[in-house]
Design a protein around this nucleic acid. Structure first.
Length: 510
RNA sequence: GGGCGUAUAGCUCAAUGGUAGAGCAGUGGCCUUUUAAGCCAUUUGUUCUGGGUUCGAGUCCCAGUACGCUCACCA
C-alpha cells in the first residue's frame, strides 16, 4: 500500500502528535453519553425550564468542519446520531489551534462541554476540552453539491458501484441511506423470528456442510474435509434436514440461514443468499397461504410501520388477501394452452410451437410448463399473488393432489413480478418419495449438473412416519429488496460477491 | 457464456485527433454564531492494462481486466 499526497499530510500529523507524546490512537474513550442521549436530555431540560447547565463528554467521527478564525464548528456522528460541536477560543484557548492544526474530516474526536443552542437554534456542545480518539489517514469520499446551468446537482459522496461494494465500509460511512437498508434488513429478520417464535416454532440450525445436497435444483459448491478424506457440499437448501426434525417430534421448526448455489449472478441472484424455511405439522398448503399472509402483514407493519409500500412504482398493500391464481387455468387464459391436453413433452412442445412459443430442445415437460409460467404469468403478478398447483415433474418434494396425481399441492408467492417464496403440502409418503427421487434421477441425465444422488437417509427417516405438514421457503434478500425499494440484490447484501481483482487490474504501484 | 455500455485528480465529472480541466477536499492566508460557510492564493494525473494506426491518441482500431445493463442459465 502506498500513500497519496493527502494521506502523507495526515501521516505527518500523526508523527508530529507522537513527537509531543500525544496518542493518535488512545486506548480508551471516556464518554458520559451517546449523542442522542445528550440531545434528548438537553431538550428535556429546556422544556422543564431547568437552569442547570448540562455537561457531557461525547465522541464521534467528524463529518463536517467550518473553521473561522477564533471560532470553529464541526459536526460529529456516532451510532446514535449527529451533533454540532461549537469550538471557541474563549473556552479552548490554545486547544483551538491544536484542533485546527491536527484534526481532519473523518477523525474520531472526544469533546467535553456544555449543551447549548446556537443563534440559529441548533443544539450544540460548547466545547471546553477535546482529545483525539482515532486519526483517519485516508480521506473519506467527499460529497458535493453544485449548480450546473442553473440546476442544482447533488452528487453522492461515493456512487461508483464497484467501489461502493468493494469498500462497503466507506459506502456506509458516507451514505446514511445505505446504513438504513441494513437496519431494515435486521428488523425484517427479527420480526420474522418474533412472529414464528410467538406461534410456537422452534428455531434450529442444520448442517451447512452436507455429504449429500438436496431440497432444490441447483448446482452446489464443493469442498473437502482433509482428515476425513471426504468431499462435502455447501447446502443448497435446508429442507431435507428440517423435515427429518418433524419425524423426530418437533412439530414446528424454522431456520434462517445461508444457502449456496453455484449459479449465475443477476439482479436477483447471489451465490450465497439468506433463506427462511419453516415446516409446520398438520398444515396443508392452504393453511400455509393464510399463515404467509399473516406473517408478512405482521412483518411489514413491524418494520415499516405500515402494510402499504411501493416497489418500483407499484403500490403494494399487504393488509389485503393475496390473489390466488390456479396455474393451469391461468396458463389457459394467457396462452390458450391447457397442459392437461398434452401429457407428454413432445405434444406440449408442438402445442407451444403452434402458438409461436419457441422452447429449448431437450428440456422436460415440467420445464416447458415452467417456461410458460415465467414468460406469460410471473411478470403480471405485480400485486401479491399466490400461484398454486404445480405439475409434479418440477415438484419432487410436494404432495400430489388427491384427485389428480399429475398436480402437486404447491404454490409460489410473487410481488412486483418477482418470485419471493415457495411452499407446499410436503410429501410424507416414503414410497412415493422414492419413486419421485428415481424419476428425478432419470430426468437429469449425464449433461445435467443439477442431478443429485438419492438421499437414502432421508427416505429412512420418512419411513418412521412423518406427520402431514406444510413447508415454506422465502428469500430474505428479496423481501429486503421489496421493503427498501431496491432493484438489485447487491444493494441489500453488505458484502455482495464480486469478481476477484486481477493482478493487473489491481495495479500495484511499481 | 453472448450482446450493449462504462473506466480521466482523493470524490463527482468535463475535454471537434493538436499544451488534460472544473467543483469539492488538500495546502498557505483572512475571518468570534457557521449550516455541505465565505474570500484570496495554490498543489495534485501511468487518462484501467497491453498492443496498434497516426507527425501527433484521453479521443480511432485490436486484445485483456473490472463494473453496470441485458440475454442465456437458474424445481
Amino acid at each position: 500500500m502506498e500513500f497519496n499526497e493527502l494521506e502523507k499530510v495526515r501521516l505527518e500529523k500523526i508523527n508530529r502528535l507522537k513527537e509531543q507524546n500525544i496518542q493518535p490512537y488512545p486506548n480508551r474513550a471516556e464518554i458520559t453519553a451517546t449523542i442522542r442521549e445528550a440531545c434528548e436530555s438537553f431538550e428535556k431540560s429546556e422544556t422543564s425550564g431547568t437552569a442547570e447547565p448540562l455537561v457531557f463528554t461525547l465522541a464521534g467521527r467528524m463529518r463536517s468542519m467550518r473553521v473561522m478564525g477564533k471560532l470553529a464548528f464541526t459536526h460529529i456522528e456516532d451510532g446514535s446520531g449527529k451533533i454540532q460541536l461549537f469550538l471557541r477560543i474563549n473556552e479552548l484557548g490554545d486547544q483551538l489551534d491544536f484542533f485546527k492544526e491536527y484534526f481532519d474530516l473523518g477523525d474520531f474526536i472526544e469533546a467535553t462541554g456544555t449543551m447549548m443552542r446556537t443563534r440559529s437554534g441548533e443544539i450544540s456542545l460548547l466545547v471546553t476540552s477535546l482529545r483525539m480518539l482515532a486519526k483517519a489517514i485516508s480521506p473519506l469520499p467527499a460529497a458535493k453539491e453544485e449548480v450546473v446551468d442553473g440546476v442544482t446537482v447533488r452528487h453522492t459522496g461515493l456512487s461508483d458501484p464497484e467501489i461502493r461494494y468493494r469498500q462497503r465500509y466507506a459506502d456506509l460511512v458516507v451514505n446514511p441511506d445505505v446504513r438504513q437498508i441494513f437496519r431494515t434488513r435486521a428488523k425484517i429478520i427479527s420480526s420474522l423470528r418474533t412472529f414464528l417464535d410467538s406461534h410456537d416454532f422452534l428455531e434450529v440450525e442444520t448442517p451447512i456442510l452436507q455429504p449429500i445436497y438436496g431440497g432444490a435444483a441447483a448446482r452446489p459448491f464443493t469442498t473437502h474435509h482433509n482428515q476425513l478424506h471426504q468431499d462435502l457440499f455447501l447446502r443448497i437448501s435446508f429442507e431435507l434436514y428440517l423435515k427429518r426434525l418433524l419425524v423426530g417430534g418437533f412439530d414446528r421448526v424454522y431456520e434462517i440461514g445461508r444457502d449456496f448455489r453455484n449459479e449465475g449472478v443477476s439482479y436477483k441472484h447471489n451465490p450465497e443468499f439468506t433463506q427462511l424455511e419453516f415446516y409446520c405439522a398438520y398444515f396443508d398448503y392452504f393453511k400455509v397461504m393464510d399463515f404467509t399472509e399473516e406473517m408478512l402483514r405482521f412483518t411489514a407493519q413491524n418494520v415499516l410501520g405500515t402494510t402499504k409500500f411501493s416497489y418500483n412504482g407499484h403500490a403494494i398493500d399487504l393488509s389485503q388477501p393475496w390473489h390466488r391464481v390456479n396455474m393451469r387455468e391461468q396458463i389457459i387464459i394467457e396462452t390458450g394452452i391447457d397442459f392437461k391436453d398434452y401429457p407428454d413433452t413432445e405434444s406440449l412442445r408442438a402445442a407451444m410451437e403452434a402458438k409461436g412459443i419457441k422452447s429449448k430442445p431437450g428440456v422436460s415437460r415440467g420445464k416447458l410448463i415452467n417456461q410458460l409460467v415465467e414468460e406469460y404469468l410471473e411478470p403480471n403478478f405485480l400485486e401479491p399473488t399466490f400461484l398454486y398447483d404445480y405439475p409434479w415433474e418440477i415438484s419432487p418434494l410436494a404432495k400430489r393432489k388427491a384427485d389428480d396425481p399429475t398436480i402437486t399441492e404447491r404454490f409460489e408467492g410473487f410481488i412486483a413480478g418477482m418470485e419471493l417464496l415457495n411452499a407446499f403440502t410436503e410429501l410424507n409418503d416414503p414410497i412415493d418419495q422414492e419413486i419421485r427421487f428415481l424419476e428425478m434421477g432419470r430426468a437429469y441425465t449425464e449433461e445435467d449438473e443439477e442431478h443429485n444422488p438419492i438421499d437414502e437417509d432421508y427416505l429412512r427417516a420418512m419411513r418412521y412416519g412423518m406427520p402431514p405438514n406444510g413447508g415454506f421457503g422465502m428469500g430474505i434478500d428479496r423481501l429486503t429488496m421489496l421493503f427498501t425499494d431496491k432493484h438489485t440484490i447487491r444493494e441489500v447484501l453488505l458484502f455482495p460477491h464480486l469478481r476477484e481483482r486481477d493482478k493487473d487490474g489491481n495495479e500495484t504501484e511499481a
